[in-house]
């Protein structure tokens, strides 16, 4: 139950963020969520979209550098302690998190946590064994 995440290299300049978003919008692809990691000079944009394969084609044909990685998304109650519980499970299982980000979707009472693990398969096993709801592409869209 892994999700495909697109990441893109962006120069840290005005307008660089809106360009890819505009490309996707023009192609009729909606963005589920977006996260940015940046330094003073460049950034990495990470995207979860509907139809990642089409999105990749659209971005690459516009000359963008696009990378596809598998990430793990889990659902958590949007209330105090929700995140801490999941992180404790991951820590106890000694699974290494490269980075993570969170967003809320649908009704808004649930938050989705997106994790980039070194070993996503092992991480999914651990989370499932502890009864944590791992979301697949279909449910997320």
């Amino acid at each position: 139950m892994k999700i495909h995440q697109l990441s893109m290299f962006l120069e840290n300049k005005p307008g660089r963020l809106s360009e890819p978003c505009r490309l996707l919008a023009d192609a009729g692809i909606s963005i589920v969520t977006l996260s940015l990691a940046d330094t003073q000079q460049f950034g990495i944009m990470r995207l979860i979209v509907h139809d990642w394969e089409k999105a990749r084609k659209v971005l690459e044909s516009a000359g963008c550098v696009v990378n596809v990685t598998e990430v793990v998304a889990t659902e958590v109650d949007d209330q105090p302690g929700g995140l801490a519980k999941i992180l404790e499970v991951i820590e106890q299982a000694k699974v290494n998190i490269e980075y993570m980000y969170a967003f809320t979707f649908r009704s808004g009472d649930k938050a989705v946590l997106v994790f980039r693990f070194n070993d996503p398969d092992a991480a999914v096993e651990v989370l499932k064994a502890k009864g944590i709801n791992v979301i697949g592409n279909v449910e997320l869209y």
């Binding site: 290299f9 990470r46 550098v65 990685t69 980075y99």
Partner: peptide, 15 residues
Amino acid sequence: EVNPGFFSDKMSEMQ
């Protein structure tokens, strides 16, 4: 120029 063959989603690798 960043090479399409070498780009990572991990900031640590890019740095």
